[in-house]
Nucleic acid binder design. Sequence first.
DNA 1: CATACGTCCTGCCAGC
DNA 2: TGCTGGCAGGACGTAT
Length: 276
Amino acid sequence: MPELPEAETIARGLDSVLPGRVIAGVTVLRYDVVKGSAGGFADALRGRQFRSVGRRGKNVVFTFDGESRLVINLGMTGRILSGPGPGPARLATHPAVHFHLADGGCVTYDDIRRFGLLTFIPRAQWRAWSLRLGPEPLARSFTAMVLRKTLSRSRAPIRSLLLDQRKVAGVGNIYAVEALWFARIHPATPANVIGAGAVARLHRSVRKVLRRAIHAGGTTLRNYRNAEGDVGGFSRALHAYGRADKPCFRCRTPIERIVFGGRSAFFCPQCQAASP
DNA sequence: CATACGTCCTGCCAGC
DNA sequence: TGCTGGCAGGACGTAT
């Protein structure tokens, strides 16, 4: 579920409470969400002190003193819940990993479907790990020209390309669909036939949608919660995603749903002209 | 190399 | 009311 705005929201929440605190122990309840052996994972993290919590693409990145890192990809239903006593911890219906802190606190990784993955990254491997991902769409360096060059090299449907984390890091199905609606581009359009003007609109739309969603605290469609257990506020702001048969907010034409690449896309057949 | 597809897993909801 | 099929925000591995 969680895409860039959700990861950003979670990371900000954790960065305000975790730095300086120490992991006393790790309990792995569900082996399939950790990379490598559960024992090795726990051993690597025990005793580490948090320096900061940030984000790379959709991944929440915990940096420790010494610059080793814990990367959490939340998959579809992952949540990171932290807090003393009740409150957020009560939301942990499917706890997969507990991080017990030396001060008595606890951070719980909770994941219904267990598509998430927790990976320990030694300092020396960070650069290589990060390089597997494409540019950050909200970075200054992510210009329309950069996007245009990426699109020019691919015949894949633009919606599929936007989901490819090696091309752009952090965009998922919801925000890809939303950005294409704003840019008035049909989701199945081959990337390399999109003209310069449309690419510029798409560049603006992707950034606008992501920034707005971060501002709203993310999108909760099902079970997303931030680190404090709150739902996201962006659900009400969706223009195309999940609106099949409902009128387009621009032209009142019913929104259509199509499936390709194994997942749904939503678009306005009037505003988002069919691909050639 | 680029692209397409199946698979991992559980919960929920519409429809019968 | 109860059951069933379809669908879900992601990403990896493999096949072509």
